[in-house]
Structure formats: C-alpha cells, structure tokens
Design a protein around this nucleic acid. Structure first.
Length: 727
DNA sequence: AGCACGCCGACT
DNA sequence: GTCGGCGTGCTC
C-alpha cells in the first residue's frame, strides 16, 4: 500500500530532516505547513518540507505527527526554495534555517493569525493617581495609564503582576480595555514625489523596464537621491498591484526612515526590525504574507519574510556589514536578496554610495547592471576631501592645530562640525606612570578601556567591567595615566577648546538608553549642538545638512588593520561620513588626519574618488587572490583549554586531506588574532578556492564528518561561508 | 539544542 | 546510604 512520509525540518542543530507519518484520519499537511511532532521525549514544532514515498529510517522508528498547525502553507514555494538553497549554500542545519527564521510566535506553535492586542486606558471616572497613596500598586498602574494608554505586553514588562490590580480598577470603573485594530486607520494623504533628475528617471525606468529577474547596482554618491529612486520604483510596483521588500541596515531603520515611507505609502507600509515585540513582528510578517502590506521595510532577517505578490526587492546601503549575520546561521542578506529575486523572478535593486567590491565586480562581469547617479540633488556639491599631515604637529590630543583652526573658522561662521573617531570610551589604555602597569582583562588578550564618565574600566571584547583603580596595583603609585583617546576624551578636549560651543557625543555609550539615539540625532539636526563627536554611528544614514566640516581624526587606524578588507572599510567610512555634510548651499570639507599622507590608499581616495579607489583595490585583490576573485570559508573553533581549539582544527585538516581537497587551499590552523576572548581560546582554519564548486564539494563531505571527531566534543566550532572578517 | 542515562564524590 | 556533577548518546 503506498504511504506518505512527511519530511520535517526541526529547529535543532541537526544536519538532516526527520521522517514522520501523517495522522490517519485527516488529509496530510501540505508542504510549507507546520506540524507538532513527537521528538525524543518532548514535542516540537517542525515544518513540512517535502512529501516522500520512502522513509530514511526503519518503520519501527517512525512516529505519527501530534497535530497539524496550519491549514494553509505558512511559506510559499519560493521562500521554501530560498531557505533550502540558503541552508545548502551556508551548510547550515536545515531546521535552523527553515524553522529558525520564522517569527518567534510561529516557532512556538502559535496560530498564523495576528495576536489580539489589548490596550488599557483611563476612563472619565478615573481619579488622580496621587489620591491613592494607600494603594501603591493601583497608583502605579493609574500613573502609567495617565501618561498614555498601554498595551498589555508593555504592562507585563513595566509592572509585573499588574493584572490583579487592573481587575480591581476596572471593577471601580476607572480603567477599561479595548482591542486595537491591527491597522489603525491613519489620516494620510500620499505625498507626491519630487521631480526626478534625468539620471534618477533613467534608473527607475531601467528597473521597471524588464520583466522578471534583473539585478541592478545603483551606484549613487551620497545626496544624489537614491531613496527617491527606490520610492518611485516602489510606486510603480504598487500601482501594478505588487509588493516591494526593502532591506536596510539595522542602524538606519529609524522612526525617520519609517516616517518617510509612511508619508509616501501610508498604511501600506509594514516594518520588521529587532525593536519590535513578538506580537508586532508577527503582525508585520503576516501582513507581508497576506499581501495587506504593500511595502515591507526590514532589517536582515526580513529577506526571508513571505510576500503574497512580490514585485521588487531593494537593498539600501548594500555594502553595509550588518547584512551579514555574525552568529548561528551566518547568511548575508544582500546575497539572499539577489537569490530571492532570482527565485521570485523579480528585479532587485542594490543601492550604495560606496558599493562593496563584490557588487562592483558583479557589475563589471555584467551580472549586475550598474546605474549611476553622479550628481547631488539640487545645488549641493560634493564635499572636498583633504589630507592633514599631522607628522611633527603639536597635537592637542588627537586634534592638530590645522584641524582646530578649521573648526574655529566654521564655528565662527555659525556652522556645524562633525568629528569622527572609531573608538569609544575615554582612553584605550590606562598606564601607571611610575612602573608601567596596565590593567588587563583576565578573560581576553586585551587592555581595559577607560570610561571616565561611567567611572569604570570596560573590556570592549567581553563586556567585563571593573571599578576604576585609584592607585597602581603593581607599585601603589597614584599616578595612573590615560593613554590615547576615544570619543569621550575628544568630547572633553573639544569642549575645553571651544567652551562657548555645545558638543554632542554620539556613540554606543551615549545612546544606550532607549530613545537616546533619536534624541541625539534630533539635537544634531535642529542645531542645538555645534560640534558632533562620534563613531561609526554618525556615519550611517543620518543627514546633517548644517554640518560643513568633517574631521576624520585618525585615518591611520584603518591603514594598519590586519584584515584584507580594512582599506575597503576605511574608504567606505570616509565616504559615508563625508556624505553626511554639505547638503545645503554650503559645500562641505572633509579633513583627514594622517601620519601617512603618501599611503596609496589615501592618495587613491583623494585623487580619484571612491570609484577609482575601488578599481585599484579590485586590481590588488585580483593579484593577491582575495575575494571577489576567490571564495572563502572560515572554520572557527574555541575552547576553554588553550590547546583544544588548535587540536580540533588540526584534526579537521587531516580529515580534509583524507577526503581530498583539490582546488581548495587550507590555510592554518592558526590562533585567532586575539587568541583569548571572554575566557575562551580561539583558533581558525581558512579555506580559499578560486572556484566555488570545489569549495562547496569539500564542505559537503567534510562538515558532517567534523561533528563525529572526538576533538569536536572539546570545542565550540562554526563554519562561516563568505566571512566578512577573516578573524 | 534538550533531555535522558550513567557512573563517581560530599552530605542528610 | 542518596543527591547531583557533567560526559555520552539520541532524537524520525
């Protein structure tokens, strides 16, 4: 008798699917549906990936599913195909990919419909919270609701045990509960787009012209109006009754970004990012799947959200490293977006002012069609880049006299200045002037960074904190000296140098509190700060039209990093930071402080712009055989005992030798550049291949065998295909 | 990953 | 005498 076997993906780090029998009395769950299944001694949520005739295991081992969880497939065939190919490409366990990328509530087996969201608010009859001094819990709840109506999930977080209190207050008729409509009607009138420049129009037309798949690289200088191109292209997609998926780096999905899309597309916009509650995330995901959302804007993981009628995929700031997931299932969302566009047969538009070398290479080979926006919109001109040779200069900390002078001039003219340093904290090292003692993290091969404002030492590699020592722990001298400078110190130095101006620091430390980043950015934009000091954070996506001078305090940092991508990143940072300035009538200036004014990277950047620079870098990569002219995979291992990680990697090397690895070079194993981190010893083995096929053939045979090595039990290991960092 | 089973040290 | 430490093995 023919029977049906369900191939089920289970969210566990297991490299294969599991076979189950359907229930007798019901039609079998379709491919793409979730099922609850017995798994070992417990019950797990799985996803039906295929139907089959034959099981991989003996009949005696087969069990029936507990229950189907969906009547319709949760994922369309295209997304299933995408996830299957992703699991295959990244050599990730199928369950982790197929089930692990679902919204948390669906992974937990909740029904695939929006959760009911209840909101509490005060009634007319509610007294002032102050009148309840003898009932502090009631006063607290009343107080919270006086501020604003609250969703139950917010109350769960803020006032544990609030439900009992709420019942009391509701009985008194002081508060009431109402269900929020999933899409509260917004009074919205679609905003008209700006008239497009010729180049913008050409770009939109190119994307809209084709039918089906096409990959486009929108290479547009900052301020050239890439977003307007996205918006217009999306407009056309919506007009054709289709949906658009827009990926953005985490940091640039601010309320402003959302507002800009909402102004144009109103309630058709759904947003998916890490700041959402599980309920909100599910609602957005379902709105995309159901087709109610015309535009889904999201960070990395949104690339796997189902769309009812896909029409276009946009990847903004495609060079941004935050598209690469750095743990677990290490996918690159930009690459997944291109793959998805191919599978869905829709165009994909990758935009950047500083495209990744990978995308530029695809542009050259014709795989991507390159669309240029060379002019800034309106009258704005591109900022002028200048090198400041700081050799022999009498520095005030990290600030040269020339830079200080330029800042002074700019401030005198009533304009804003931005100073960029990719190092947070007050000083990267604290040093005893009497004996040379330096406080070091005992879990990492690293010094503590001094955070003076928080009065502590912080290890930037594992997060460990310790109180500020008053005296040297080596010799007892009270002569501890902060060495070097981070943003916090620059903030102090600059404030001292320009006491009549307001300095605002923007880094992870100053924006840790919820909403602080937005408040800071607002202060930067509305002119209540004259001088902005910050890290990467300042470089990403935010526009400061009144800033006319940018100082890159320490370009040398980027010139000496060990990673082969360091100069690409330095250039992208310099261009991204400089793109933040001079948007208005005033042209901007970018002053780059360096001890290496002759360095080829800096010279190329200055004289040719990013395009020329990137061309040179591509030539270098080709000569050296680095990506995008070769393909990498990195096997990482870490263990609590120093020798175990290297031992494991040595074993994997022998295994690869046994299997044969023609066409793949294995480099290592070597200790990681920072061998000890967070109390664990780390090492790595790099695989490099001219062509992908032999690399993936080796990985396919090699990986399942790695887990069986005795040494594997002593370490935590992971494989990173197309690593962004080779350390 | 969970969750069992299993075999050796310090406690009621 | 047992409570519990984490090594080892399995999940259709």
């Amino acid at each position: 008798m023919p029977r049906l076997i369900l191939k089920v993906a289970i969210d566990a780090p297991l490299r294969h699917l599991f076979d189950y029998l359907p229930l007798f009395n019901a039609p079998p769950p379709a491919v793409g549906c979730r099922v609850r299944v017995p798994f070992g001694r417990r019950s797990q949520v799985g996803l039906v990936v295929a139907h089959a005739r034959h099981a991989e295991v003996a009949d005696a081992q087969l069990r029936h599913i507990h229950e189907p969880l969906d009547s319709d497939p949760l994922l369309p065939a295209s997304v299933l195909e995408l996830l299957r190919r992703a699991a295959d490409y990244y050599h990730a366990p199928p369950g982790e990919v197929l089930v692990g990328t679902l919204p948390g509530l669906l992974r937990a087996g909740r029904p695939a419909r929006p959760m009911q969201v209840w909101q509490w608010s005060l009634t007319e009859a509610a007294p002032s919270p102050d009148s309840l001094s003898r009932a502090p819990r009631q006063a607290a709840l009343l107080g919270a609701l006086t501020q604003a109506p609250c969703e139950e999930s917010q109350l769960d977080a803020a006032l544990p045990g609030w439900r009992v209190t709420a019942r009391t207050l509701a009985d008194k008729g002081w508060i009431e509960r109402a269900q929020i409509a999933p899409d509260a009607a917004t009074d919205w009138a679609p905003e008209r787009g700006h008239p497009l420049t010729t180049a913008q129009r050409a770009a939109v037309d190119a994307v809209a012209a084709g039918s089906g798949f096409g990959a486009f690289l929108l290479d547009g200088v900052t301020g050239s109006g890439k977003t307007e191109v996205y918006l217009t292209a999306i407009e056309r997609v919506l007009a054709a009754g289709r949906q658009a998926l827009v990926l953005v780096p985490e940091i640039s999905l601010t309320p402003q970004t959302e507002a800009r899309f909402r102004a144009r597309f109103g309630a058709a916009v759904a947003v998916l990012h890490s700041g959402l509650s599980d309920t909100e995330r599910l609602a957005a995901w379902l709105a995309a799947r159901g087709g109610q959302a015309g535009v889904l804007i999201g960070t990395r993981s949104a690339v796997f959200a189902p769309l009812a009628r896909p029409g276009l995929i946009v990847v903004d700031e495609e060079h941004d490293g935050s598209y690469k997931q750095q743990d677990g299932f290490r996918y690159h969302a930009r690459d997944m977006a291109v793959l998805r566009a191919r599978i869905e047969d829709v165009p994909v538009l990758l935009g950047s002012a500083t495209p990744s070398l990978e995308s530029l290479a695809h542009g050259r080979s014709g795989q991507y069609r390159v669309l240029h926006l060379r002019e800034r919109a309106g009258s704005a001109r591109l900022p002028q880049l200048e090198l400041l040779d700081v050799r022999h200069q009498r520095m005030a900390g990290l600030v040269s006299p020339a830079l200080a002078g330029a800042v002074r001039e700019e401030l005198a003219a009533g304009r804003q200045v931005m100073l960029f340093l990719n190092r947070r904290g007050y000083a990267p090292v604290l040093l005893c002037h009497a004996c040379g003692w330096v406080p070091k993290c005992d879990r990492c091969d690293a010094h503590y960074t001094l955070h003076r404002g928080r009065r502590l030492l912080l290890c930037h590699h594992c997060g460990r904190e310790r109180p500020l020592p008053i005296r040297c722990e080596g010799c007892g001298a009270q002569d501890l000296l902060p060495l070097g400078a981070g943003t916090e110190r620059i903030e102090n130095d600059i404030a001292a140098l320009f006491p009549d101006h307001r300095v605002l620091r923007v880094d992870r430390d100053s924006t840790r509190r919820r909403g602080a980043l937005d408040a800071h950015l607002e202060a930067a934009r509305d002119g209540s700060a004259d001088i902005l000091v910050g890290t990467q954070m300042l470089a990403k996506g935010h526009h400061f039209p009144a800033v006319t001078l940018v100082g890159i305090l320490d370009a040398d940092q980027g010139l000496f990093a060990a990673d082969f991508r360091a100069s690409e990143r330095l250039a992208q940072t310099i261009y991204q930071v400089s793109g933040r300035c001079g948007r208005g009538e005033q042209p901007g200036r970018v002053l780059i402080q360096t001890h290496q004014p002759q360095h080829p990277v800096l010279r190329a950047l200055l004289h040719g712009g990013y395009g020329t620079f990137a061309a040179e870098l591509l030539a270098e990569r080709e000569a050296a055989g680095w990506p995008p002219f070769s393909h990498l995979a990195l096997l990482r291992a870490e263990s609590t005992r120093q020798e175990d990680a290297l031992w494991f990697l040595g074993e994997t090397l022998s295994l690869a030798a046994e299997l044969g690895h023609a066409g793949v070079d294995l480099l290592g194993p070597v200790p990681a550049p920072m061998p000890k981190r967070a109390g664990r010893y780390r090492a790595q083995l790099l695989l490099q291949a001219q062509r992908r096929a032999p690399l993936h053939a080796l990985l396919r045979a090699w990986l399942p065998a790695l887990a069986l090595l005795p040494a594997a039990r002593q370490v935590r290991w992971s494989l990173d295909v197309d690593p962004l960092d080779t350390y």
